[in-house]
Amino acid sequence: MIDWATMGPQLATSIQQTLYMVIITMIIGGILGLLIGILLYATRPGNILQNTVLFNVLNFVINLVRPIPFIIFISLVGPWTLEVIGTSIGTNAAIFPMTLMTAVVLGRIVEQNLVGVDPGVVEAARAMGSSRTRVLFDVVLRESIAPLILGYTFIFIGVVDMSAVAGYIGGGGLGDLAITYGYQQFNYAVTLLAVAVIVVIVQLAQLLGNFLAKRMLHR
């Protein structure tokens, strides 16, 4: 059973830690991912910054990193985390690998959405005398806002998932709560509680994402 006197504050802290990790990761990783995606798109053969070497290197790195299970990825980048963050345990230490993984996965999602923009629309803008850079920002990015919002929503859920694993290096959060107080102390109710809160966070994020995408889609 749940002893609310101790579990109440514990739960509040966990929610705070989860939201902190997820939000910081989404902001930094989100921006990095957008940049990687744009760079991938722009260096494609026939595009503004056409650069086969850079394109292939980025492509390779993404394909290399994406399939690494996150729990292994954490220890893999551990030394680097120590150097950048100053520690390899704790909430901030968890954010570092989370951000890296998010940026890489998002890079691919952003690229795919940009590539999906109707080439006819790009041609129309070019026919008006718009420069290639301008076409990228005014047309390609703008036309893909709605699918990008859905892509970011999709990633958000992945980041919540990552934050749960981060408990492994003392990141805290709801995942840690479920393992430490639920699984290890045979308190199934705590596990259920953590799951319920995670489900609520994810559902709210999905609702917000759908709402924003719908507003931007104009359909």
Binding site: D118, G120, V121, A124, A125, A127, G129, E143, A146, H218
Partner: peptide, 28 residues
């Protein structure tokens, strides 16, 4: 680019900017 700006073009599939209103399309 300057030359293109002085030549209009219309298309079979219209190629309008779906994320912009009619007025914004014409304004672009």
């Amino acid at each position: 680019r300057g030359l293109r700006g002085g030549i209009g073009m219309i298309f079979q599939q219209f190629n309008l900017f779906n994320s912009r209103s009619v007025a914004k399309n014409v304004e672009y």
